[in-house]
Computed example of a mutant assay.
Amino acid sequence: MPAAVEFRSVSRHFGPSSAPVKAVDSVDLTIAEGAFFAMLGPSGSGKTTCLRLISGFESPTAGEICIFGENVSNTPPHLRNVNTVFQDYALFPHMNVRDNVAYGLMVKGMAKAQRYAKAEEMLALVHLDAYGSRKPGQLSGGQRQRVALARALVNEPKVLLLDEPLGALDLKLREAMQDELKSLQQRLGITFVFVTHDQHEALSMADSLAVFNDGKIAQIGTPAQIYAQPKTRFVADFVGSSNVLPPALTQNLGGPAKWSSLRPESLHLDPSGPLQGTVTSLRYLGSGHRVAITTQGQDIAAILPAGSPLPEPGAQIQLGFAPAALHIMDEV
């Protein structure tokens, strides 16, 4: 069974060949059929360019892009069996919801009755079957996002591309839509490729993800692997804001003289713990407190659960952790 999406040494450069901007730099990537795959990274890391390469809105400077085994590197967007959901929804304000959803089918020449029936089916799928006659301006942000999803799904794509689709929503609605998207993907069984800069979205929704940095993939794995076993300092710091410890401090804690990662929630107050330092700040997080200390010239953060005894700023404290929590990184 061919992969849903495959990149083979794909690059996308902009600007003059003498000094190109390498938005995507020789990326190899395989996305399995039926996966919920996330592309995670900061702005300018290359994740959105990769999405545009899959959709056909950008063409590779080098390499091959395959969708279900077919090389589509030079195939125009309308001939690829993919659809995109954008952050700004891109709905037609003068059309009602039903016509927005049915628009792609109209372009394909489907009869009105048939395309309306399919549009209503998709609206029912996203729980908007009573909203077909409304205009987009009469809907909430979450409802407009569902319309955009229905419009993309009505064309029955093999791969659905989602370009930061939840970025414009408030926190509570964004969390609700995360659950809905994941449930929808599991029901439909089609491949979702989701671009985000929000680590919590990627970790909570994806089956697997790629962390991008400077046009390259820093690491690919399951959310648990990326979070608990980062390969590089960048991944450790970007995904979950880990304590990134230099070789000397790692060695003092019983590890080899290499860079390591120690998650804040792995630390606890321990009068005989190996990390001793001065408390520099306390921050309330709702479910607990973030305690920052300085030790051996290094800033360390610990997350203490609600109800734990809290030290005062300026106090000398010691922190302990389970040996398995100290993750030695392969690369710098």
Rank of each mutant, 00 (worst) to 15 (best):
residue 283 R to V: 15
residue 281 S to D: 13
residue 247 P to C: 06
residue 269 L to S: 13
residue 265 E to V: 06
residue 267 L to P: 04
residue 257 A to F: 02
residue 262 L to W: 12
residue 244 V to I: 15
residue 272 S to F: 04
residue 249 L to E: 08
residue 269 L to T: 12
residue 282 L to F: 07
residue 269 L to V: 04
residue 266 S to P: 11
residue 255 G to C: 10
residue 253 L to F: 01
residue 246 P to A: 04
residue 281 S to T: 11
residue 247 P to A: 11
residue 254 G to R: 04
residue 277 G to F: 14
residue 266 S to W: 09
residue 261 S to A: 15
residue 250 T to H: 00
residue 273 G to K: 11
residue 272 S to W: 02
residue 248 A to S: 14
residue 272 S to P: 03
residue 254 G to D: 02
residue 275 L to K: 02
residue 278 T to N: 05
residue 252 N to F: 01
residue 253 L to D: 02
residue 252 N to G: 14
residue 277 G to K: 12
residue 274 P to V: 11
residue 281 S to Y: 03
residue 263 R to S: 07
residue 273 G to C: 09
residue 252 N to M: 14
residue 279 V to H: 07
residue 254 G to Q: 03
residue 251 Q to S: 08
residue 248 A to K: 10
residue 263 R to D: 05
residue 249 L to V: 15
residue 268 H to C: 13
residue 265 E to A: 14
residue 259 W to I: 06
residue 276 Q to L: 03
residue 278 T to D: 03
residue 260 S to T: 13
residue 242 S to L: 03
residue 283 R to G: 13
residue 254 G to S: 06
residue 280 T to C: 04
residue 253 L to Y: 01
residue 276 Q to S: 13
residue 280 T to H: 06
residue 269 L to F: 08
residue 261 S to E: 05
residue 270 D to W: 04
residue 279 V to L: 07
residue 265 E to G: 07
residue 251 Q to Y: 01
residue 280 T to F: 03
residue 246 P to N: 01
residue 257 A to P: 00
residue 266 S to C: 14
residue 276 Q to K: 11
residue 258 K to P: 00
residue 285 L to I: 12
residue 282 L to T: 11
residue 276 Q to H: 11
residue 271 P to H: 05
residue 283 R to S: 15
residue 252 N to W: 02
residue 249 L to A: 04
residue 283 R to H: 13
residue 250 T to N: 01
residue 245 L to R: 02
residue 282 L to M: 08
residue 267 L to Q: 09
residue 250 T to L: 00
residue 254 G to L: 01
residue 244 V to M: 11
residue 267 L to F: 11
residue 256 P to W: 08
residue 277 G to L: 10
residue 266 S to F: 10
residue 252 N to D: 14
residue 249 L to C: 01
residue 284 Y to A: 10
residue 280 T to W: 01
residue 262 L to I: 07
residue 263 R to Y: 06
residue 252 N to T: 14
residue 268 H to F: 14
residue 279 V to G: 07
residue 254 G to V: 01
residue 272 S to H: 14
residue 279 V to N: 09
residue 251 Q to G: 00
residue 261 S to P: 11
residue 268 H to K: 12
residue 280 T to M: 10
residue 281 S to A: 15
residue 274 P to N: 06
residue 262 L to M: 06
residue 245 L to N: 01
residue 285 L to R: 13
residue 266 S to Q: 13
residue 266 S to D: 15
residue 274 P to T: 09
residue 242 S to F: 03
residue 272 S to R: 13
residue 275 L to E: 06
residue 284 Y to N: 06
residue 276 Q to T: 15
residue 243 N to M: 09
residue 257 A to C: 07
residue 264 P to L: 02
residue 254 G to M: 01
residue 253 L to G: 00
residue 258 K to A: 12
residue 267 L to I: 10
residue 283 R to W: 11
residue 282 L to C: 14
residue 259 W to D: 14
residue 246 P to D: 02
residue 251 Q to R: 13
residue 258 K to L: 13
residue 264 P to W: 02
residue 254 G to I: 03
residue 277 G to D: 12
residue 285 L to Y: 08
residue 269 L to G: 05
residue 254 G to C: 05
residue 243 N to K: 04
residue 270 D to G: 12
residue 271 P to W: 08
residue 246 P to W: 03
residue 249 L to W: 08
residue 245 L to W: 00
residue 276 Q to P: 00
residue 262 L to S: 05
residue 266 S to L: 07
residue 243 N to D: 12
residue 247 P to E: 07
residue 258 K to C: 15
residue 264 P to M: 06
residue 248 A to M: 09
residue 256 P to N: 08
residue 262 L to G: 09
residue 285 L to H: 07
residue 280 T to V: 14
residue 271 P to Y: 01
residue 253 L to A: 02
residue 275 L to Y: 04
